[in-house]
Design a protein around this nucleic acid. Structure first.
Lengths: 222, 222
DNA sequence: TAACTATACGGAGGCACCCTCCGGTTCGCA
DNA sequence: TGCGAACCGGAGGGTGCCTCCGTATAGTTA
């Protein structure tokens, strides 16, 4: 709209993710700059955490000043890290995708392959169903800035692939489903479960439906 | 196609004067009451006109105060007629649907049946492609307040039916397509052509594609 | 350890927009 | 023509957005 949106050259590099509480989480742009100062990184994380819970509770339109306060940070700091609301939304999305994808490897270790897959699908959809309006905003951004999503898309595909192949190898699901098939189905459920008639329960049923489809015709039925 | 709104206005007035069944067109609250005062009706129309052009130009987030100013009306007046932005959006939508549906009968008279149908489809999609973000907002509202859209849905279906049957009767298109099929296809195009990558040209190509589908297998090919 | 500097912090302030409220005006009817 | 109900308008208080710049501090060098 008429808002200025100056989008200064702003390019928060961080890209230093060696020992990892949070993996990478690279904001857009810049490579090779010096690493972020410790306090900056701390604040950035605090803002993301506060934003995630604010979005979940009050939707993506939550006042940015509330988020800053909740993070124990000035509004200026929030704006320095995320010059626009969209960048903040994307930051939250990116971090949660990373967590979700990491959980895939843990699940594979802890559970039987098919259960791991099902649980992962549930978590995936739950993320979306929990954040009111977030999916809608992401969908809009996706149409505009496809490039931003390239990295997360690959991550998701790899995680899906891991779970699918291990379940297929165990014969617990059919083996003719690709990671793309799976992510597309789940993505569809996420889109569908966004919006005013918002219901995690419905989303869960849809996930189970897709999962049954995966089991259909599997060698080792149970 | 610049058409005056007088006919639409007239028909609304007619409907209102018939007792019973208030069409949803009446402003909120007025329940079986006397008709609107002349100045109120005038202002209401002015606001709708200004809103339509503001939405087209700056998107559905246009400041309401600009719209009021453009309409030559105080902000209080705008709020009295449309207490929320959504109601204003719906008002614009409703009026334009009415115009569009009326144009169907005119088109049937003026053009060969198939051309009339194609032209109508084009106009339909053009409306949507012209208003940035409007379709998205309507989609959200639809999920929430299905009841509001019942009337417009019927209108659209009737108009589509008129065009379809006359073109099918002339053998210029196949006869196994229902009005629901058509409106669903067109609706899909409208959804697709909303969003940041906004392009009437693309929408037009999609319409032609659907139209070719309608001609496929028609008795009288040309 | 102290001094130094590049970097980050914070919040006041200006602006845009939202929405309400109520005194003044106008319409439509008798 | 007179009257009351209905309508008009815009001032004003409130909220949220975003910027700007003086102050604080992490990390580095001597």
């Amino acid at each position: 709209m008429v808002r200025s949106t100056t989008t200064a050259e702003q390019s928060q590099a961080d890209q230093q993710s060696v020992e990892g509480q949070q993996p990478v989480v690279t904001p857009v742009g810049a490579e090779g700059c010096r690493p972020m100062r410790a306090d900056a990184r701390r604040n950035r994380e605090a803002v993301l955490t506060a934003a995630a819970s604010a979005f979940a509770e009050n939707g993506v339109e939550s006042p940015l000043e509330d988020i800053a306060r909740q993070a124990g940070v000035g509004i200026g700091t929030l704006y320095r890290h995320f010059p626009t609301r969209e960048e903040l939304v994307f930051g939250v999305y990116q971090r949660e995708v990373a967590q979700l994808c990491e959980s895939a490897t843990a699940l594979v270790d802890e559970l039987p392959p098919a259960e791991a897959l099902q649980e992962w699908m549930r978590r995936f959809v739950l993320y979306a169903a929990t954040k009111r309006g977030l999916v809608g905003m992401l969908r809009t951004m996706m149409a505009d800035r496809t490039d931003l999503f390239a990295e997360t898309r690959v991550r998701i595909r790899d995680a899906a692939n891991l779970l699918l192949t291990s379940a297929a190898a165990a014969g617990e699901i059919r083996d003719d489903i690709t990671a793309e098939d799976l992510t597309r189905s789940i993505g569809g459920i996420c889109m569908a479960s966004d919006g005013p008639v918002w219901s995690p329960a419905n989303a869960g049923r849809l996930v189970d439906l897709v999962f049954d489809g995966l089991r259909f015709g599997a060698p080792n039925k149970r």
